[in-house]
Design a protein around this nucleic acid. Structure first.
Length: 218
DNA sequence: GTTGAGCGTT
């Protein structure tokens, strides 16, 4: 059997899901099935894939009918080398059957990690935003709201400045927007080419460190 | 062709 029930979530009955981490990008459900099937009857194996590219994401879920089999698989396959990678098998914290796990049955059954110290490199990379759409949406909503206000405000200012619907006296009294903010510089300043080119920079005949006196830097 | 913490219907 290569494929399982592809009807999405098979059933909401007593199925225990295991999370398999540190999988190779080449490992598929078919590769995990013979490994997990040894320890019990595998109900379903699901490996999330990237919705943008469709590539494997490096982890999967294995479901068992019984908790005993699931734990046996955890103890037997956790730390096992699969496809050249040492996988980590543990009970899924989130998911359709997370309620059973949250009762406190499996949580206390999990003895302890064998010492698979996870790489302490929490780099802020957010691959997917389609997940965690609950709290992250709110967080982004607030940020987006403020962004829209700021953006709308900026647009309104530029629009007034362009249409000049307000007398110039207003601009002089509120000379904040009468001209470009001297304090705000272009974000690409210093990183890319300077917004204004000095005639000195246009002369490649001289090295950088030996800047001519025409820079006018008293 | 690349990558490497994490938690879900391709």
């Amino acid at each position: 059997m290569s494929h399982f029930k592809r009807s999405g979530a098979p059933e909401n009955r007593d199925t225990f899901s295991l999370l398999v981490l540190n999988l190779s990008f080449r490992t598929t459900a078919d590769d995990l099935f013979p490994l997990f099937d040894r320890y019990g009857e595998v109900v379903d194996i699901y490996i999330p894939r990237d919705r943008r590219t469709g590539d494997l994401r490096g982890f999967g879920f294995v479901r068992y009918n019984y908790e005993d089999e699931a734990q046996d698989a955890v103890h037997g396959l956790d730390g096992r080398k699969v496809d050249g990678r040492v996988i980590m098998v543990q009970f899924a914290k989130y998911g359709p059957n997370s309620e059973k796990i949250h009762r406190g049955r499996i949580t206390e059954e999990i003895p302890k990690p064998r010492g698979h110290v996870r790489s302490h490199s929490p780099r802020p990379r957010y691959r997917d935003d389609y997940r965690d759409r609950d709290y992250r949406r709110q967080s982004r909503s607030r940020s987006r709201e403020r962004y829209e206000q700021d953006r709308y405000r900026d647009s309104d200012y530029r629009r007034r400045g362009r249409n000049r619907s307000i007398s110039p006296d207003y601009d002089r009294k509120h000379n904040r927007y009468s001209s470009r903010s001297p304090g705000r510089r272009s974000p690409s300043y210093g990183k890319s080419h300077s917004p204004r080119k000095t005639p000195c920079e246009g002369t490649p005949s001289r090295p950088r460190d030996d800047r001519p006196p025409c820079s006018g830097n008293p």
